[in-house]
Structure formats: C-alpha cells, structure tokens
Amino acid sequence: MASGVKPRVKVPKTAAAGETITIKTLISHKMESGQRKDDDGNPIPRSIINRFVADFNGENVIDVVLEPAISTNPYFQFDAVVPEAGEFKFTWYDDDGSVYETSKEIAIG
C-alpha cells in the first residue's frame, strides 16, 4: 500500500539559544481518501497518514491529526523555540500501521 513514501525535513543546522526557527516537513504519500472508486466501481480503501508528531529532546513540539480531505504529499511548516542543542524527531503514522521516522540534529552557534 505504502509505496514511494519518503519523509523529508528541513531544519537549520544551527540556531542561537532561545531562537525561534522555522521547520518544514513533507512526506510523499498518496493520501487515498477512501471516497474514490476504481475503474470497476469498487471503493478504493482509505490509506492516509493519520498523525504527525514532532519532538525536541523528548519534549513534544507539535502533534497533528490528519483527516482524509488532506491532499497528497502533506506538508507542514511550523515554528519552534530551540532552548539548547539537541535533536528534532519527526514521526508520521500511516493507516496501514507503518510508522515513518526521521530526525535532525541542531547545534547552538
């Protein structure tokens, strides 16, 4: 089901302590809504990313519930305060049970 799924994130390599940075994330995913029908008229089962979470050093930054109306390749851009050097961890949860993870280090400088 989940073919061609690839998470991508863009986080600055460094930031000043306490600085607010912009994070961009995108995961390539079909986001099949469950509303469409195939050529034979049978409904195509829903298959979407249903949750997206970003954590910084174990602390939650953003937790998003995604609904079927969200279009293909969901993209999130958000701001986060960076109090110290550490690691951003990004997790996407797929309807089919797959979990996609990626992480980015950020240094203070």
């Binding site: 995108l26 390539s28 390749n73």
Partner: peptide, 12 residues
C-alpha cells in the same frame, strides 16, 4: 527546492 513539489518526482 524543498517547497517545490516537483522535486519529489525529481528525487525518484
């Protein structure tokens, strides 16, 4: 390029 959705296809 991060915002450009065409790059997903280019990466493939």
């Amino acid at each position: 390029d991060f915002d450009n959705p065409a790059m997903i296809f280019v990466e493939a």
